Amino acid sequence: MNKNNDLNLIEAELRHIPKIVELVNLSYRSKELRGWTSEAEVVSGNRIYAEQLQDLFVADSKILLMFDAAELVACVHVQKQQDHAYIGMLTTHPQRQNQGLGKQVLQLAEDFAQANFAVTGFEMSVLSCRTELIEFYLRRGYVLTGETEDYPIDANVGQPLVEDIRVLHLVKLVH
């Protein structure tokens, strides 16, 4: 396995969709290969489908991919929204977690958004029951906005297995 500084970061193209779908669903919903980001205990079903991913290939929206040789090991979606960038789908392969890769990819996403979209801050959403993930983002300078919304059952991103699951919003301002 290469060290993180040997990894290659590229912008996704349509041809990468199958690998991205595989990585995201494996990382978030696999019952067999669970990393600390797994949602398999709280949400069932796929996290994303190829059609949903294809919809992210629009203006002011990029999916950044990190490869170790030919293996896709991480990805993140960055989309400009007025003066902020929405950062979502931050994913690292379960076997590559706890090595600092998630922190590195998040920082690269923030740097990319500042360099390409001239934003003043970042936004993201996290499931309310994912306390370890919320704490991860709080350590990276994000703050909870206090805004919440119901789990998007109609968005075809899985079915909640726990009651009262909410989507929380976080922000981080550029200094």
Results as ranks from 00 to 15, higher is better:
residue 86 Y to A: 02
residue 78 V to N: 00
residue 68 D to P: 08
residue 120 T to K: 13
residue 117 F to M: 10
residue 157 V to L: 06
residue 170 L to S: 03
residue 119 V to Q: 03
residue 165 I to K: 11
residue 166 R to L: 10
residue 129 C to E: 14
residue 154 D to F: 04
residue 167 V to T: 01
residue 113 A to W: 07
residue 115 A to T: 13
residue 124 M to T: 03
residue 131 T to K: 15
residue 85 A to C: 13
residue 170 L to R: 00
residue 120 T to P: 04
residue 120 T to W: 03
residue 151 Y to Q: 04
residue 109 A to C: 07
residue 163 E to F: 06
residue 112 F to M: 04
residue 115 A to C: 02
residue 157 V to W: 03
residue 170 L to K: 05
residue 121 G to M: 07
residue 92 T to Q: 00
residue 130 R to Y: 01
residue 138 L to V: 13
residue 172 K to G: 11
residue 128 S to Q: 08
residue 167 V to E: 07
residue 171 V to C: 12
residue 70 A to H: 09
residue 138 L to Y: 03
residue 144 L to Q: 06
residue 131 T to S: 13
residue 156 N to S: 02
residue 90 L to F: 08
residue 149 E to K: 15
residue 134 I to C: 03
residue 91 T to C: 10
residue 94 P to Q: 05
residue 111 D to H: 03
residue 137 Y to Q: 01
residue 109 A to G: 08
residue 121 G to P: 11
residue 120 T to G: 14
residue 148 T to V: 11
residue 118 A to N: 15
residue 130 R to K: 11
residue 87 I to V: 12
residue 93 H to W: 02
residue 99 Q to K: 05
residue 95 Q to F: 11
residue 172 K to F: 05
residue 137 Y to H: 15
residue 114 Q to A: 06
residue 98 N to T: 09
residue 138 L to P: 05
residue 104 Q to I: 15
residue 167 V to H: 01
